[in-house]
Amino acid sequence: MAALSPAAAVPRRGGVARTDDAAAVVVRGLSAGYLSLIVLLPLAALLWTSTRGGIGAVWQTITIPTVLGALELTVGVSAIVVIINAVFGTLIAWVLVRDSFRGKSAVNALIDLPFALPTIVAGLTLLALYGPSSPVHVNVAYTRMGIALALLFVTLPFVTRAVQPVLIALDRDMEEAAAVLGAGSLAIFRRIVLPNLGPALLAGAGLSFARALGEFGAVTLIAGNNPLRGTQVMSLVIFGDIQGYQFSSAAALSFILLALSLAVLLVFGRLSRALSGHHDR
C-alpha cells in the first residue's frame, strides 16, 4: 500500500500545512521582511554603491598603493594565522580528545573564551601584556606580529571545534590496524589520522581565514591607526574611510573584502567536500 511507504508522509504533512496556510504566509512574509530590512537591503546598498562606477572603478581603488598594501597585509597575515591555527588547533583538539589530565574539562571550556570575549577586550588584553608597557618586555604593538597575535586569539576556536568531534568519532580500529601493519606513530598520524581529519580541518581553517580577513575590534588597538606604520589591515582602512565620509571608497574596499572572504569560504568548502566525498559511508 502506498500509505506505508515513507514518501507518503510528505503529502500528509503538506495537508497539515494547508490548514493554517494564511498564518504561514503572514509569518513567512514577516520573517522575509525582517531579514530584508536588516540584512538584505543594507547589503544591496553596499553592492550598489561599490559597483556604481563599474568594475573599472573597483579595480582603480585596488591599485592605489596604500590599498594594495593593506590588501597584501590582510591576506598575508590571515594566511599565516590560518596555518598556525591549523597546526595548533589540531594539536589542541588532539590533546583534548586523546590525552587525559586534571583540569581537562576547564581547558575545554576555555577554548570558547575567544567567542565569548568581546574582540576589543581581546585586543586590549594582548596589548596590556605584549604592548609598550609589557611586564615581560615583549612589545608587539603596531607590528604585523601584533596583528597576527590578535587574529590568532579571536580565531582560536574554529579549527579546534571543527576537528574535535571528528577526532572523537574517529575509528580507533584504523589506527590499531595501521600499527599492526608496522606503521609508527608519525606514519599513523600522517597517513591515517590526518587524512580523516582533513575535511573538518579545512572547514575550520576556512572559517578562521574568513574571520581573520574581516576582523576589526581585536586589531584596532594593536595595529594603531597610523597608515605610515604599514600595519593597516583592510578593515582599518575601511573604517578610516567611513570616518572621513569617503563612502564610495569604503564601499569599494568592502566589496573587495566581501568577495575575498566569500571566495575563501567557497574554496575551502569545496576542498573540504572534495576530500570527504569519496570515503563517506
Binding site: 543594507p42 547589503l43 546598498a45 553596499l46 554603491t49 580577513l213 574581516g214 576582523e215 576589526f216 575590534g217 583592510m234 578593515s235 575601511i238 573604517f239 567611513i242 563612502f247 569604503a250 564601499a251 568592502s254 573584502l257 566581501l258 572572504s261
Partner: peptide, 12 residues
C-alpha cells in the same frame, strides 16, 4: 561579514 562592512552597509 567584517563588522565594519556591516556598519557601512547600514549607513548606506
Amino acid at each position: 561579514l567584517s563588522p565594519v562592512v556591516v556598519g557601512l552597509s547600514l549607513v548606506l
